[in-house]
Each structure stands twice: as structure tokens, then as C-alpha cells.
């Protein structure tokens, strides 16, 4: 397959990592499986600089304006937003459930924090997801090593700071192994 190397343009501000945007939409009546998940998820852009990021982002629908079962993902280039990916298989994610109306703002803040390297956990971050559902929306951030409690605690603390979460927000950590076992994430 053709592989196009994405690099920052002249005079642009490079990012520490390249990131790829993905979009998926699921028909809720169908059972979730990794096979149809992979069929339904599409990547639509990789960015290497701050300026490239804004060019893609400014053309996107705000996640809070999406309907039904839709997810936006922003992952480091080369990491598929799937539990089975080499970078994710020993990992996990912090899950934040949001009442309707908050997803767009929190999604923007979490991706800016990730791209700006605000988490200070080395190579640990894999990507972030915003999941639009009927009753609530869900934000999650994936990291490589679920067993690394220092890292997961640091990610949680950074999230609280950069998102300025409402005090009653519940944050839950789930390993991808557990997600695979119960075959349900959200």
C-alpha cells in the first residue's frame, strides 16, 4: 500500500508526534465485534504540525453536533484505535462520562493537551476518543501500559487540571484486557 510521509510545512510548528484522525459510526442494533469495528472505522487525515492540525480540525463537525453512535479518534500515527494493536494490547484507558452539551469543549481541550505534550508521561499516550451516545457522551484517553500506576495516576491528574472537570465527575480506569473480556466498552 502507498504510504505518504507527513511532515511539517515550511515555517510551521512541528508536533512531538504525528497524529491521525479516525471516525467511526456503529449501528447499535448490530452486535459489536472487532471485525465490524475495523470495517466501520476510517482514517481521514494525519498531521505533523500545529498548523496542519487546525486545518483538519476546523473542517470537522463538532462532536457534540453528531448524532447516534459516532466516535472521533485522534491517535499517534501508526497506532490503530483498537485494543488488538501492538501499542494498545497491554494498555488501558481513563473514561470520563459527560452529560450532553459538554463533549465538544472537553474534546478540544483533551486533544490540545495531548498534542502539546502536557501529560509528561514519555511515550505512554496512544490517543484519545470522544464517543457520542444517546444519553451521555464519553471521553477516553488510552495509554500503553495499564499496569504502570505512576503513569496512569499522572494522566488522571493532568486530565483533571487541563479539563477543569466538574467536581462530581467520575473517572474510571479500564484495561483493554477487561474490555476484551466483557466485549463491551460503551
Amino acid at each position: 500500500s502507498k504510504y505518504k510521509v507527513v511532515v511539517p510545512g515550511t515555517g510551521e510548528h512541528p508536533l512531538q508526534y504525528n497524529y491521525t484522525f479516525w471516525y467511526s459510526r456503529r449501528i447499535p442494533s448490530r452486535p459489536a465485534s472487532s471485525q465490524n469495528y475495523e470495517q466501520n472505522i476510517k482514517q481521514f487525515g494525519t498531521v505533523a504540525s500545529v498548523e496542519q492540525f487546525w486545518r483538519v480540525y476546523s473542517h470537522l463537525v463538532r462532536p457534540g453536533d453528531l448524532s447516534g453512535y459516532s466516535d472521533f479518534h485522534l491517535f499517534k500515527e501508526g497506532i490503530k484505535p483498537m485494543w488488538e494493536d501492538e501499542a494498545n494490547k497491554n494498555g488501558g484507558k481513563w473514561i470520563i462520562r459527560l452529560r450532553k452539551g459538554l463533549a465538544s469543549r472537553f474534546w478540544e481541550n483533551i486533544i490540545l493537551a495531548m498534542m502539546g505534550e502536557q501529560f509528561m508521561v514519555g511515550e505512554e499516550i496512544c490517543g484519545v476518543v470522544v464517543s457520542i451516545r444517546f444519553q451521555e457522551d464519553i471521553l477516553s484517553i488510552w495509554n500503553k501500559t495499564a499496569s504502570d500506576q505512576v503513569t496512569t495516576a499522572r494522566i488522571r491528574d493532568t486530565l483533571r487540571r487541563v479539563l477543569n472537570l466538574p467536581p462530581n465527575t467520575i473517572m474510571e480506569y479500564k484495561t483493554h484486557t477487561d474490555s476484551l473480556k466483557d466485549n463491551s466498552s460503551f
Binding site: G11, H13, L15, V50, E51, W54, A113, G116, E117, V162
Partner: peptide, 21 residues
């Protein structure tokens, strides 16, 4: 190694500048 760190304020300013500085 050195990491490229940007705060939210800087990233938002880049959004509003039509030409990269």
C-alpha cells in the same frame, strides 16, 4: 530527549494566525 511542549494558549494563537510565524 527534548520534547516539544505547547500550552493551550499558544495552540489557540496558532489557530488564529493565518500565516505560520
Amino acid at each position: 530527549g527534548t520534547r516539544i511542549i505547547y500550552d493551550r494558549k499558544f495552540l489557540m494563537e496558532c489557530r488564529n494566525s493565518p500565516v505560520a510565524k
